[in-house]
Design a protein around this nucleic acid. Sequence first.
DNA 1: CAAAATGTACGAACTAGTGAGTATGTCAAG
DNA 2: CTTGACATACTCACTAGTTCGTACATTTTG
Lengths: 217, 217
Amino acid sequence: MAAKRENGRKNDPQRTQEDILDVATEEFATHGLAGGRVDAIAEKTRTSKRMIYYYFGSKEGLYLAVLERSYRKIRTLEADLELANLPPEEALRTLISTTFDHDEANPEFVRLVSIENIHHAAHMLRSEAIRDLNVSVIEMIEAIIRRGVAEGTFLRDADPVDIHMLISAFCFFRVSNRYTFGTIFRRDLSAPEFYDRHKKLISDAVISYLTAPEPDR
Amino acid sequence: MAAKRENGRKNDPQRTQEDILDVATEEFATHGLAGGRVDAIAEKTRTSKRMIYYYFGSKEGLYLAVLERSYRKIRTLEADLELANLPPEEALRTLISTTFDHDEANPEFVRLVSIENIHHAAHMLRSEAIRDLNVSVIEMIEAIIRRGVAEGTFLRDADPVDIHMLISAFCFFRVSNRYTFGTIFRRDLSAPEFYDRHKKLISDAVISYLTAPEPDR
DNA sequence: CAAAATGTACGAACTAGTGAGTATGTCAAG
DNA sequence: CTTGACATACTCACTAGTTCGTACATTTTG
């Protein structure tokens, strides 16, 4: 065993882990947790399978790490939105636009969340990091609604979580159900023509919901 | 016939297949396609694994059969809605209520669709039965909008597929993302208190979208 | 040198799928 | 109404291949 270090290896644990996580994100997002193959991940990595187990312990451990990292990424996005100075309607449109663009730009995140739901969010529940995500969106929406109601623009004092759900559902569904919906209605939801139109649709829907008078039924 | 014997075997192909499909639906909806185990299905069945292959050829064949059967079930539901006599708004509320209730009552269907989306709707595309689903909802929505616009109740001439998407997204998301959304926002979306409230929310949102004047921006 | 990081080769368990033979029901002919 | 031929329905045991995970050796780094 001539110990030649022709291509002498460099130890770079940081990069190794990032590399594994990148590849694993793609693999799990494409095939699911059960469908994702550890060997397949290892091969696409610049390192070996041994390192996956060295750093993440198990397949599930790796999956959880992938999930946590994905969630951590969004948290930052929401954080630096300056909405307090905008008029309520505009603030809301900006917020919706951000959610919309995020889901549009991160289909692998959307897929991971779908997969996690199939597993009843079991891994998420075990992860403090994700469980304790402080969700600033809700506070933002709450503030916007309060301002809107105060100044008389909004006529409905809606629940902010409900409003967030209305927004999220549409933005998420557009990406998560792109394929089945697209197949049935013969419509390619990733086509650029729908981008502006759908963003306007959900924005207008939310705004008109809030500005419409509460029907007495 | 009438050959009834104590513990002798009874040939009942119809029942055998139904039995397999019932169990497989549950298994795939719970664990996904890759995660679902043929052996597990076989065990919960009153028949054997050999019969699964006898009737469905392969694991994928079984999955496809499950998917087709699930889709076939809904098709009927939509069909017998009598909306033509109702005023537009009420017709729309009835339609939304139906979609809402369907997703609420069939979480395993919602899950199967989610799973199918992870697979890019690959199986669906291969199934004529599903691909050729004639979607009457769209025509219904189209008719309602047309009537509403004609009589001046609705001020927007919206695309019916877009409207259906807005409705579907919310109803679907409520069920499909029940677990992750519920975990993050500490809210049990299957709790009865949300049932009426959410149904009213999506209905009001759609109605107010259609009745609100098109903003000029 | 010790500790951390990495590569190789292997194995135990699992899993989709099958080979080969058995039971059941139908029906036509004797 | 009995017999036997035949197609469909079914059972049991087995296998080839995959997949997660690990034992062991080796290299890098401080």
